[in-house]
């Protein structure tokens, strides 16, 4: 059973709309496939705003959240998404057990596969780890963050939150694109999978993406990804319509990258004064967890009508519901997808 949605007419019929077995990264997606997932998520945004937030579309399916790295919000978001769709959701906190790497990763994949999971959501601290597992299991795999590589559902939920905010401001385009929108991503770009996925996703949707960080936190040759590179925050903010702040990923740093959090705030903290340098009404985003008073001031983070931070969390559940629902269509033998 599927709900008929008006946007369906815009995409190829059946599985051609999203011909992927899993969701490993934004890099594998075409623009229309990104738009498809965003459009699919709208029904779940609506459902999640109702008192009875339940669908039984995935009833009987087992979804395993295998998190090899600590996570609170992403894990919770995937868990809620699975449960609202009626699936049986099991969380595996591999980060807390003593087996974290080695052949155990493959062993874990084979174990999960043998348990006949219908979808596996994986977070792992090493770039490429999710793909390694995906190659060895029969069910769809969703990347919930692999090292410094990609975090595709974060980029999708950011795009959805942005779309809703633009819609409320009367600036949304009917085709779902954000052509010419100037987005500045500021923070630890080097160690950020969120930055990489967002660069790819926002560019696919037509945005102009700027990245801003001190040189040590900027990845080499990042210009080859088609972004504008800034080291001075004020210049990066000039004309920016969206400011996306990232935290310092201290746990991934090998050596000292900045002198102190205080000094970092001095150069890159998003204060109300700094925000005033951006375009009028510029929107503020942050994937969380925030370090209030370091990369973002509380007054900015809580700025009603401008800060999308709680909306991002809300959209996260809807996007993950969409991804789980779409990726299990084949197993559920949905017409046109089986």
């Amino acid at each position: 059973m599927t709900i008929e949605l008006p946007h369906r007419a815009r995409y190829p019929a059946g599985a051609l709309a999203f011909p992927h077995r899993g969701l490993l990264g934004i890099a594998q997606l075409q623009t229309h496939e990104i738009l498809f997932l965003l459009d699919e998520a709208e029904q779940w945004v609506a459902l999640n705003r109702r008192p009875a937030k339940h669908s039984d579309q995935l009833a009987g399916l087992t979804i395993i959240n295998a998190f090899f790295e600590n996570s609170t919000r992403t894990l919770l978001s995937f868990e809620i998404a699975g449960k609202r769709l009626g699936a049986d959701v099991v969380n595996m906190h591999a980060a807390q057990s003593s087996v974290k790497k080695g052949e155990t990763l493959i062993d874990t994949a084979m174990t999960l596969n043998a348990m006949r999971a219908d979808a596996i959501v994986i977070r792992h601290g090493s770039s490429g780890a999710v793909r390694l597992i995906a190659d060895r299991v029969a069910c769809p795999v969703l990347n919930a963050g692999d090292g410094q590589h990609e975090h595709p559902t974060q980029a999708l939920l950011d795009a959805l939150a942005l779309r809703h905010a633009l819609r409320e401001a009367g600036r949304a385009s009917s085709d779902g694109m954000v052509n010419g929108l100037v987005v500045t991503i500021c923070g630890d770009i080097r160690h950020s999978r969120v930055a990489r996925s967002n660069i790819l996703c926002l560019q696919a949707l037509g945005a102009v993406v700027r990245v801003c960080a001190p040189p040590a936190l900027m990845p080499a040759e990042i210009t080859q990804m088609g972004v504008e590179v800034f080291h001075h925050f004020d210049a990066a903010l000039d004309g920016a319509e969206v400011v996306m702040m990232l935290r310092l990923q201290n746990e991934r740093m090998d050596g000292q990258f900045i002198p102190s959090p205080r000094e970092y705030r001095h150069l890159y903290g998003l204060t109300p004064e700094r925000l005033a340098r951006a375009a009028p009404g510029a929107l503020v985003m942050h994937p969380g967890p925030m370090n209030r008073g370091v990369e973002i001031d509380s007054t900015v983070a809580d700025l009603a009508g401008r800060s999308l931070i709680t909306a991002q969390v809300e959209m996260g559940v809807a996007i993950r519901m969409a991804c789980l629902e779409v990726l299990t269509r084949r197993a559920r033998q949905v017409e046109g997808w089986a």
Partner: peptide, 20 residues
């Protein structure tokens, strides 16, 4: 350091620890 790749487009896209 703990780099496993050379700084460049590929290492940046893959998110691999890299060194110049």
């Amino acid at each position: 350091g703990n780099a496993v790749a050379t700084d460049g487009d590929i290492a940046t896209r893959l998110g691999l620890p890299s060194a110049p």
